[in-house]
Amino acid sequence: MIARFKKIGLVLLCLLAAALSVVFWSEGYYLPLSLLLIVLSLIFLFVRFEKKHITPEAVVMIAALAGIAAVSRLPFASLPSVQPTSFVVIVSALVFGPEVGFMVGSAAALVSNLVLGQGPWTPWQMLAWGLMGLSAGYLKSSALMRSRAGRSAFGFIWGFLFGWFTNLSFILSFFGSFSWEFFLTTYAASFYFDLAHALSNAFFIILFSKQWQKILSRISVKYKIFY
């Protein structure tokens, strides 16, 4: 019965969201429109996570990993793109799979912004880091992720993808003055930061991914986190 109510609620939510998006679109409110769509996609990924059977050990471990990912970002706040958060997200996804990777990434983004300052960029970062974890988790047993070079290439590419994705939140906020010139200038201006993010990801993965995978899989076996 409750499950049925939840389903009806979700359908109603979608209809409401669809109606709102039409209004936002026709009136040119692009920032609320984009935030609405992002929050909806986050909700569906969270629902997916809720449905999976997960032990209390896994729940607390996800929180601890997200906490570590978030805290590791704070000392680097003055260097906008150099931080080990992406590394922690990718490595936890490689060991524990896509759902855990997504949760670690999105929770880390949400919680670290409580310290650094919430803004319209928070949902974008939540989705970007969540998707980074999700994709790393889906690829975890592929040949690409087994080799160290492949893993670091993955981190390098995501360094750029993350920047390109979160740039959109900046551009959409300015939509009233949108021009392709503005678009290109933004992406050119962010190139240095994206490169720094990509290089630091690759650097952390090359040096530490094996060690961290070992630490995490050992914990996973010791406390029977997934069975």
């Binding site: 929180a63 570590i68 880390a108």
Partner: peptide
């Protein structure tokens, strides 16, 4: 009530921030 695990994870992560720092 509707997302028990997600809400719990976020709450515990919040508590971990000062502890980990």
């Amino acid at each position: 009530s509707f997302a028990p695990r997600t809400a719990f994870i976020i709450t515990v992560t919040l508590r971990f921030i000062p502890l980990l720092q």
